[in-house]
Design a protein around this nucleic acid. Structure first.
Lengths: 350, 350
DNA sequence: TCGCGGAGTGCAAACGTTTGCAGAAAACTA
DNA sequence: TAGTTTTCTGCAAACGTTTGCACTCCGCGA
């Protein structure tokens, strides 16, 4: 029913190849003919069928974007940035959600493989080897996990965790808990590794709790363990968990930051709106989205760039952290200036 | 490079049509042949090219889902529900975001048109006539806007607004403000219409403020106007604005609900986590997502169902509303039991 | 006058599938 | 046994594009 290239050709009295060229290589056709063709196309409401085009050219001009949980406010800024970056280059982003489920993830990549020119895999939960295998079926850029041999974009959460622990130690906290993220999360392991070494360096004890669901409920669920552990400060895997935890603590009669200090990670918009406002490690999510799109589109046909990008993080001190029982050091607990969130050009190369 | 149907045919010694049938009509091929073909396919890593298939069948097995703002927590539950509903029927959902921009919206529908079997248009900002025009280019289901002649899914926000105003009036509020949503929003108009008539019925005055951006910032931005208007209660277009507003009021030294009562709409997860917890009108977002997918897929080839579905809403009373200056009526301000959020089968037909 | 080159266009073969039709073989039915 | 149906498979034409090649004109310089 919709007009095809043939209809336009008939109506404008030229061959279909001329119509095709009018759209995909305008300089090859006589301006006069071109405008006639365009007029007919307009009149018939013709739009080139991208699927048919893809069949020939091998490029769909679509990019798949797979996230663990679209309801996690961490992702939307990344998604939006990726979308606008893609749109500028005449690409479309198709977003899908895996429900934090590794097997769904695999199926989605496979399903997407033939309909897109590449996939942005954010915060994957599947195994490294599976990712490597999939990367042979479709160009992949992995976000939030480092993986040799594949193009990746990660945030420097190790630095962030270190800053957070230093901050808490500086406030006099000696008993700190780390609320871990989901199983299979590279970021969670990275945070843990770095937080442990930072705690050791500060003579603090670090109790690791988890793995947990990275949601408000997940945070709320560990409140009791936190209280039982007797810690005076907590670093949570993400802001959502931190917020849930604060809520959970309050129902147990503990207040933040008076009784317990809490630090989140991500700096989602929400963390400015809760009471108390959340101290957190800001991650440049939008920049990550843009960078990922750039990397995917960068290597035109010479497949398999394996550039690795690490984006800086920054500690943002708000109201959910306060002095602990220990001696109050006056080491500067302030934030480190990081990659400006709006700056694409300034990816720090690793 | 990736294996095609021809490779499989060669390897298994049958014609390509047999391979094709092995996948798309297995009952037509001899079990023995079929298993041989499947083995070869497996071995070669063959997956049917959906684009090529779509060219012939005219069905892509994809559905486009366009939302105004993916960062608005109202949408994710709808998206997830739609995704899982679609997945069950072997369809994929492609989500895109318009940044609340009507012109982007139009472009997206057009771009999506050829790559999907239909589009779910959520909370559109464009004109009715444009929507109707687009619906001739691609099957459309409109969510959050009523439109004759097109299949639509809406929430009964009129009822919700009425319940909210009744609740506030019952608490003794006589000067109420309505913080409107964005220009072009059907829902916002509907709320306004209903709230005005409910206010009249309750002998209360209703000041309308807006249109506004439907975000935290949008809510925060009107705090001053609210204070100047001298109202004692507010109904906000959505929870996000309500939360922003509460924050804004607090920086102006007004506390909720002591000085001013605030009611939101949507019942996003977050509204349970802010302090005070938000009184709000719950909308069955997940059910809407499922219903929309069902409607799109329902009319197989007999295009153009024009069923209209209205989902019930429910008032959820939490901590952001309290007694006003006026006489305290004892009319029941309680919530109305509505469509269970998990129930798909129970869409209320209009 | 001839030859040459460039600009514009048409031709037809692809791309990877599906599917109506037809033929062959096998399995029934009478 | 012969006829009839069923089951399976192959053939070839689509689907809507892109693109290398070849052709025709036309203008230009020698």
């Amino acid at each position: 029913m919709p007009a095809t290239i043939r209809d336009v050709a008939r109506e404008s009295g030229v061959h279909i190849s001329t119509v095709s060229r009018t759209f995909s290589a305008p300089h090859l056709v006589n301006p006069e003919t071109r405008s006639r063709v365009l007029a007919c196309a307009e009149h018939l409401g013709y739009r080139p069928n991208r699927a048919a085009r893809a069949l020939i050219t091998g490029r769909t001009h679509n990019i798949g974007l797979i996230v663990a949980d679209i309801a996690n406010p961490f992702f939307p800024p990344l998604i939006k940035a990726a979308e606008s970056q893609a749109r500028q280059r005449d690409y479309h982003i198709f977003v899908t959600d895996t429900n934090e489920d590794a097997s769904v993830e695999e199926g989605l990549v496979r399903a997407l493989a033939k309909q897109v020119d590449g996939v942005l895999l954010c915060s994957p939960r599947m195994s490294n080897s599976l990712i490597e295998q999939l990367s042979r079926e479709v160009p992949l850029v992995v976000v939030n996990r480092q993986l040799t041999g594949l193009p990746t974009v990660v945030m420097d959460v190790a630095q962030g965790a270190r800053l957070a622990i230093d901050h808490l130690s500086g406030l006099g906290h000696r008993q700190i808990a780390l609320v871990a993220g989901p199983r299979g999360s590279w970021t969670s392991r990275e945070i843990r590794r770095s937080a442990m070494s930072a705690a050791r360096a500060n003579d603090a004890e670090l109790a690791v709790i988890g793995p947990n669901q990275p949601t408000e409920d997940g945070g709320m669920a560990v409140a009791e363990q936190i209280v039982r552990a007797g810690v005076t400060a907590v670093l949570a895997y993400n802001d959502l968990m931190a917020i849930g935890l604060i809520e959970g603590l309050s129902t147990l009669g503990r207040s933040v930051p008076e009784d317990i200090s809490v630090v989140g990670i991500d700096d989602i918009a929400l963390s400015r709106l809760t009471r108390p406002k959340l101290t957190t490690v800001a991650t440049p999510t939008a920049a990550a989205g843009r960078a990922a799109v750039d990397m995917l589109l960068a290597h035109g046909d010479d497949r398999r760039t394996t550039a690795q990008i690490t984006l800086q993080t920054e500690l943002v001190i708000r109201d959910s952290t306060g002095p602990g029982p220990g001696p109050h050091s006056h080491a500067d607990p302030g934030g480190v200036v990081a990659t400006a969130p709006g700056e694409v050009a300034s990816y720090a190369k690793e």
